[in-house]
Computed example of a mutant assay.
Amino acid sequence: MTTTGDPTASRLTARELTLAYEDRTVVDGLDLDVPHGAVTVIVGPNACGKSTLLRALGRLLKPRRGAVLLDGTDLARIPTKKIAQSVGLLPQTPVAPEAITVADLVARGRQPHQHWWQQWSDADERAVTEAMARTDIADLADRAVDELSGGQRQRVWIAMALAQETDLLLLDEPTTYLDISHQVEVLDLVRQLNHERGRTVVAVLHDLNQAARYADHLVAMKAGRIIAQGPPAETVTADLVRDVFGLDSVVVPDPVTGSPLVVPGRPWQSPAGG
């Protein structure tokens, strides 16, 4: 069931990666090649290690064993600022400084590109303006972030990640708090950035159908290990859904995209209702 991409086409890789919190091992001996120039989506049940893996890929979590490599070099050996110029990360539950405005928070995405002799440039201004326009938050520029709704705050954080203008973008559940319309807008934006700007994206999503619709490369995890990976059309099957999620389902072609569409089994009905 498992397929792998060409490792020569990967800038970001993990080798024999073991991740743990104190004495609890979450990811064990994992190898991963992130396909360059593609959208990779990681899926799996709660507590399977998805977000933990993404944190390690962004150097927010130090491996217990093994390594994450960027262009063949261990992340631990690369200066933080250099990593931030190449890898942008939107964590699952980011915290904004108290009373900071939307425009100021988005502007913080430009810090890795600034120098002591040039604190702000036309390129910085353009990147921030474009990121806010793409995420539909330009009219919120002067608002305090802590006054916004959950969905609005999520779009502000996504704008900050976009303003960073990195070649590699890591997104941990970017559709959290968003209604279905904004979920689609965000995922369409991810695809647009990938196709028009050539950005490599790794995202963690809970919705398997959204993952299958938007991913070029899908990674299914369970209990800290990769169970299957490859194009969604080759990876998402009823057997995989049962194995990874413990769910009986039927997998059919999406009538719009042709991608795999997971339809759960019949919902519970009372005996009186037939």
Rank of each mutant, 00 (worst) to 15 (best):
G44I: 01
L69V: 13
L12I: 03
T129V: 03
V39D: 12
A123G: 03
G49Y: 06
M132G: 10
G151T: 05
V186N: 05
G258S: 12
V186G: 11
T2C: 10
S249I: 05
T2V: 14
S181V: 14
L218Y: 13
L193K: 04
V250L: 13
L261F: 10
T18E: 04
G274Q: 02
D74K: 07
A223K: 10
R242V: 02
T80I: 06
S86Y: 00
R191K: 13
T176R: 11
D122R: 12
P35Q: 05
Y177G: 00
P97V: 10
D124E: 11
A212C: 06
D239Q: 12
P231V: 09
L12M: 09
L171N: 03
A103I: 08
A14L: 01
R199H: 15
G37I: 09
N46Y: 01
I100Y: 02
Q92R: 03
G109H: 00
L57S: 06
D243F: 00
A141N: 08
G198H: 11
R143S: 08
V236T: 01
V43Y: 08
P264S: 08
V190S: 07
P253T: 13
V202I: 15
V256D: 08
R197A: 14
A220V: 06
S259C: 14
T176M: 12
V244A: 04
H115S: 15
V26L: 11
R110V: 09
K62S: 12
P45Q: 09
S121N: 11
L90Q: 12
V34R: 05
A138S: 15
R126F: 07
V87S: 02
H195A: 13
G273S: 14
R197T: 09
H182P: 02
T18M: 07
V204S: 03
A38D: 15
I227P: 00
T25D: 01
V41L: 10
R110W: 13
R191I: 09
G5H: 07
V102W: 07
K81A: 07
Q164H: 11
L218A: 11
T135P: 01
W120H: 10
I100Q: 00
S149V: 02
R59G: 03
L169H: 12
G88M: 04
P112L: 08
L17M: 14
R199C: 15
E234D: 14
A141R: 12
D216I: 05
H115F: 11
Q85S: 11
Q92N: 05
D104K: 05
V128L: 09
Q154N: 04
T93P: 05
K82E: 15
D172I: 04
Q229K: 07
Y177Q: 12
I100F: 10
P91W: 10
V41Q: 04
T135K: 09
D188W: 03
R153E: 13
V251D: 03
D33Y: 01
L105H: 01
I180V: 14
A38V: 04
A9H: 15
R213W: 04
R59N: 15
N46S: 12
V262A: 09
L75K: 13
A141D: 08
P174T: 04
T8N: 14
L247A: 14
L60E: 11
A203F: 00
D6T: 10
A56L: 00
I226K: 02
V241L: 03
R225C: 05
R11K: 12
R213F: 08
A211F: 03
T166I: 00
A38T: 06
L30A: 08
Q85E: 15
L140P: 06
S270T: 13
H115K: 14
A96T: 07
V219T: 07
I227A: 01
R197F: 03
T2K: 12
